[in-house]
C-alpha cells in the first residue's frame, strides 16, 4: 500500500468526492491559489474552478452560515476554518442553525455539511491558534464530531463525513499533517461512530485520539518491552462515541486512562469515564479511572510552557505506570 501524508489523505478524500459528486464543494479562506493555510487544498482550484472552490473573505460566520444554507437545499459543502479556534466566530451558524434545523423543522430538513477544523497546539501559535475545542462541540446535539489520528482514518472518515446527512465537525491536528501512513488508492469509507483498537493489550485501557494517540502508542510500545500490555483505543469519533468498544476493553483490563489535549475541565475524557461508570464495566474496575488532559490554561507561546500545557510522552508514561502498578 502506498504511504501518503495525513494532509494528502484529506486532500485526496475531498478531491475524489468532488469528482464523484457535483454537489460537493469547498468553501473557506485562502483555499484557492494559496492552497489553504496548511496546504490541504493545493491544486483544487485548478481542477474544480472558483465555482466549486469558493474562496471567501475573512468571514467565518458567513462561511459556516453559507455552508448550512447550501446544505439545507441539497448541496454538500466542505467548509474550512483556517484554524479550529475560529469556529468560535462561527458557533452561531453551527450550533443554532446547522445543528438544529432538522430537529426544529420536524425532521423535514437535512444539513449534510462538513466543517474542517485544524486544531491543537505545538506550533508556537499561542492562545488563539492552538486550541482543542472538540469537547465544546460534542455538547451540541445535532452535530457529529470526528477526530482522525492517521492518514488512513482521515481519508476514510472524511469521505464518510462528506456523505453523511448531518453536520460533521472534522477535527484535524496540525502536527499530524506531515505524518505518513499507508492509505489504499481510491475510495473506501470508515463508519462514523466506530472506534478502533490501535494496539491490543490486557493490563490497561487507554483511550486517546489525534496527536495524543501517537504519544500513547509510543509509550505503550516501550512498556511492552517490560511486559506491560496496554490496550490503546482510538474512538476516532467523539460524537457519537463508540462506548461499546470502550466498555468491552475496560471489562478485559479493569483499568482506564483517557488522554486528550483539550483542557481537562469539561473535556471529553469526563464523558468517556461517565459512560463507563454507568455501564456494567464499572464492576470490573480494579482502579479509579483517570484523565490526563491539557492543563486548564490558554496555550502559551513559550516552547517550554506550551509543552507543559498538554500531555507529553513522559506525563503519559508516568500516568500509565501509576495505574499499572496500582498506585491509585
Amino acid at each position: 500500500m502506498p504511504e501518503i501524508t495525513y494532509r494528502e489523505a484529506i486532500h485526496d478524500a475531498m478531491v475524489e468526492e468532488m469528482r464523484r459528486d457535483p454537489s460537493v464543494f469547498l468553501i473557506g479562506e485562502d483555499i484557492g491559489t494559496y492552497g489553504g493555510a496548511f496546504g490541504v487544498s493545493q491544486g483544487m482550484l485548478e481542477e474544480f474552478g472558483p465555482e466549486r472552490v469558493v474562496e471567501t473573505p475573512i468571514a467565518e460566520l458567513g462561511i459556516t452560515g453559507a455552508a448550512a444554507g447550501a446544505a439545507m437545499v441539497g448541496m454538500r459543502p466542505i467548509a474550512e476554518m483556517m484554524f479550529s479556534d475560529f469556529v468560535l466566530l462561527a458557533m452561531e451558524a453551527l450550533a443554532n442553525q446547522a445543528a438544529k434545523a432538522r430537529f426544529m423543522f420536524g425532521g423535514k430538513a437535512t444539513v449534510p455539511m462538513v466543517l474542517r477544523l485544524p486544531g491543537g497546539s505545538g506550533t508556537g501559535a499561542a492562545a488563539q491558534h492552538s486550541q482543542s475545542l472538540e469537547s465544546l462541540l460534542i455538547h451540541i446535539p445535532g452535530i457529529k464530531v470526528v477526530m482522525p489520528s492517521t492518514p488512513y482514518d482521515a481519508k476514510g472518515l472524511l469521505i464518510s463525513a462528506i456523505r453523511d446527512q448531518n453536520p460533521v465537525c472534522f477535527v484535524e491536528h496540525k502536527l499530524l499533517y506531515k505524518s505518513k501512513g499507508e492509505v489504499p488508492e481510491g475510495e473506501y469509507t470508515i463508519p462514523i461512530g466506530v472506534g478502533e483498537i490501535k494496539r491490543p493489550g490486557t493490563d490497561l485501557t487507554v483511550v486517546s485520539t489525534g496527536i495524543m494517540l501517537h504519544r500513547c502508542l509510543s509509550v505503550a510500545d516501550r512498556l511492552a518491552q517490560e511486559g506491560l500490555e496496554v490496550e490503546v483505543l482510538d474512538p476516532r469519533t467523539l460524537r457519537p462515541l463508540d462506548t461499546e468498544m470502550i466498555t468491552a476493553s475496560v471489562k478485559k483490563t479493569g483499568k482506564l486512562l483517557v488522554v486528550h489535549e483539550a483542557v481537562k475541565t469539561g473535556g471529553w475524557a469526563g464523558e468517556v469515564i461517565a459512560s463507563v461508570s454507568e455501564s456494567d464495566a464499572f464492576n470490573y474496575l480494579d482502579a479509579p479511572m483517570r484523565r490526563l488532559a491539557g492543563k486548564d490554561v490558554p496555550i502559551p507561546y513559550n516552547r517550554l510552557l506550551e509543552e507543559a500545557a498538554v500531555p507529553q510522552e513522559a506525563d503519559i508514561e508516568a500516568e500509565m505506570r501509576a495505574l499499572l502498578t496500582n498506585q491509585y
Binding site: V54, G69, V73
Partner: peptide, 16 residues
C-alpha cells in the same frame, strides 16, 4: 440575522 447567514449558501447553491 439567521436568514442572512443561510442566504449566501442558498444563493451559491442556486448559482452553482
Amino acid at each position: 440575522g439567521g436568514s442572512l447567514q443561510l442566504a449566501v449558501g442558498v444563493g451559491l447553491a442556486a448559482k452553482m
